[in-house]
Design a protein around this nucleic acid. Structure first.
Length: 277
DNA sequence: AAGCCTACCTGTTGGC
DNA sequence: TGCCAACAGGTAGGCT
């Protein structure tokens, strides 16, 4: 599933293919995504030029010469760039025909595919950060303000489990179940510990762990980053080396005792009873 | 009002 | 082997 590192990998892979091109045609084959696709999408996008690809949390942002596209891949979404005549696949929902100039032929096509339709596609006229999906999102994990002091301050008085706290998009952007599990394992913090009962020093470890696990995953994505065109078919979501997530029953790589599975806020949570306190 | 629960969706997995 | 329920995930909005 596309987590923050995967979205960043997609952004890097698509940037060179989209930047500078013109959107020459738009087709919405299935508007029933997580939120209905704006019926006026085609009118907003046709004739626009792509200026840059950006990312905020797990949202991919396509900056245009007027306004921009906000894409979320949900948990099964993919984007690929294909020849205009390439056969459609099941669950191809949105097609953007791209050209090299403001007029002339469509030379490439960006296709948004999402079997589960948990993702979404939005157009915005204003600044990205003012869009209702993006306003109120906490700092990016790699932003300088995201540190132990910040987490400690935000958690003050909170009695919910630190894993919930870490997955709260208002607290920090883009940390989902997998990387919350991994970061807590790396930091040696029990996921069910009350957020307000963790020291600033331990939060400093946690902030560093969040950055480390995300950076490592992005680096691994980078190594598998090929082109996002016909030949690769799909921007395959790389396998990252996970130390805790999905490894319940297997030995902890630090102490050898079996990792345990529990549920916190109805989410699968794996941790080591010995190494995480 | 903090923090929990649910809806949304379908491909995959596990149990009987 | 075949069937079907459970599960996975992020987010917003509803509920307590």
């Amino acid at each position: 599933m596309p987590e923050l590192p995967e979205v960043e990998t997609v952004r890097r892979g698509l940037a060179g293919l989209l930047t500078g091109r013109w959107i020459r045609a738009v087709a919405v084959l299935e508007p029933r995504l997580r939120w209905p696709v704006d019926p006026a999408l085609s009118g907003h996008l046709t004739g626009r030029r792509v200026l840059a690809l950006e990312r905020r949390s797990k949202f991919l942002l396509v900056r245009l010469d007027r306004g921009g596209l906000i894409l979320h891949l949900g948990m099964s979404g993919t984007l690929r760039v294909v020849s205009p005549g390439a056969p459609l696949l099941p669950h191809d929902h949105v097609r953007l025909g791209l050209g090299e100039a403001a007029s002339g032929p469509v030379t490439r096509e960006l296709r948004y595919n999402d079997p589960r339709r948990f993702g979404s596609v939005h157009w915005t006229d204003g600044p990205f950060e003012a869009h209702r999906l993006l306003e109120g999102i906490g700092p990016e994990p790699f932003d300088a303000v995201f540190d132990g002091a910040y987490l400690h301050r935000r958690a003050r008085g909170s009695r919910r489990p630190v894993k919930n706290f870490l997955m709260d998009t208002d607290v920090v952007a883009g940390v989902g179940n997998i990387y919350a599990t991994e970061a807590l394992f790396a930091a040696g913090i029990r996921p069910d510990r009350k957020a307000g009962r963790i020291s600033r020093a331990r939060y400093a470890r946690l902030a560093a762990a969040v950055r480390e696990v995300l950076a490592a995953a992005i680096a691994q994505g980078g190594t598998t980053l090929r082109d996002f065109t016909d030949s690769s078919g799909r921007p395959g979501y790389f396998r990252v080396s996970l130390r805790a997530y999905g490894r319940h029953g297997s030995p902890c790589d630090r102490c050898g005792r079996p990792l345990v599975l529990t549920r916190i806020a109805n989410r699968a949570t794996v941790f080591c009873r010995n190494c995480q306190r």
